[in-house]
Design a protein around this nucleic acid. Structure first.
Lengths: 139, 139
DNA sequence: AACTATATTGCAAATGACTTGCATTTGTCA
DNA sequence: TGACAAATGCAAGTCATTTGCAATATAGTT
């Protein structure tokens, strides 16, 4: 968490209560949060939290590369703290909505695509959808 | 294209001028189109085309599995005709926006994820972003 | 501790993609 | 051709997200 504060300072970004709270909630959530959801979780400890500010801060954190925006929901984006985490992807249960992380997706795979297309690959998004173990049993 | 008309009939869906035109434009585009873009391309041959109808028809075509909705643009979805095409993915140039198809992504990859997570995998979205050959040279 | 420059916030209003209600029109099939 | 269900057009609504601007807070500097 130290690194984050340093990075903010380096970018002339002031450390406000709401920012600290947003970072904390993201960290505690351990799952991608939609702005509205983050806002709700912020409220208890920060009654004057403001949804607009949440949006602005998520955008700022994304620009700094501290947060990743994920588009697997139909009507809104979710945001996840990158912190020092490994690059990873997600698998989403289509029945209960649970999100699990996928670590260890081989980079070999990405370089294969680069070779195939001659693109320089800067980023990639891999999303998997299906039924988690619990929801499989409920069928 | 015959199969499409048969499928529509089987679902009590009427074949209207606008539907024929939408299918033709999607087919000619050979790339995913946003509803607004599709609407523009529709206009010349169909001056009374209506954006609401475009939305409604894309949704219907998606429900029938004739069209795939893609979310790699920030503010809107794009739609691509599936027709008889192989399941495939896309790589998007972050500079010029060009979209290329990726065929031959190994299914081995998907089954590996299934084993790792114990999910039943129903769907997946793989998107790659980078610089195409032309835009690499312009740097 | 007060001062200043600049960043941040809060609120209300705007935006823009997409959806919906409903009256009118059109396709299909007997 | 006629009847009925489905499709369309238009206007209005929805909802996530963005923006303008005035008020406030932060972080150096005196």
């Amino acid at each position: 968490m130290k690194d984050v504060l340093v990075l903010l300072k380096e970018n002339n970004i002031k450390i406000t209560d709401e920012r600290r709270a947003i970072l904390r909630v993201l960290q505690e959530a351990k799952l991608p949060l939609a702005p509205a959801d983050l806002f709700l979780r912020l409220k208890p400890s920060m009654p004057k939290a403001n949804l607009t500010t949440v949006y602005r801060n998520l955008e700022m954190l994304e620009d700094l590369g501290l947060v990743k925006r994920l588009g697997f929901n139909k009507n809104y984006f979710s945001y996840e703290l990158i912190d020092g985490r490994e690059h990873h992807h997600h698998i989403v249960c289509q029945s209960c909505g649970k999100v699990e992380d996928l670590e260890n997706i081989s980079e070999k795979f990405v370089s294969e695509i680069a070779k195939q297309t001659n693109f320089t690959i800067e980023d990639h998004n891999l999303e998997f959808f299906g039924l988690c173990v619990i929801c499989q049993k409920e069928k």
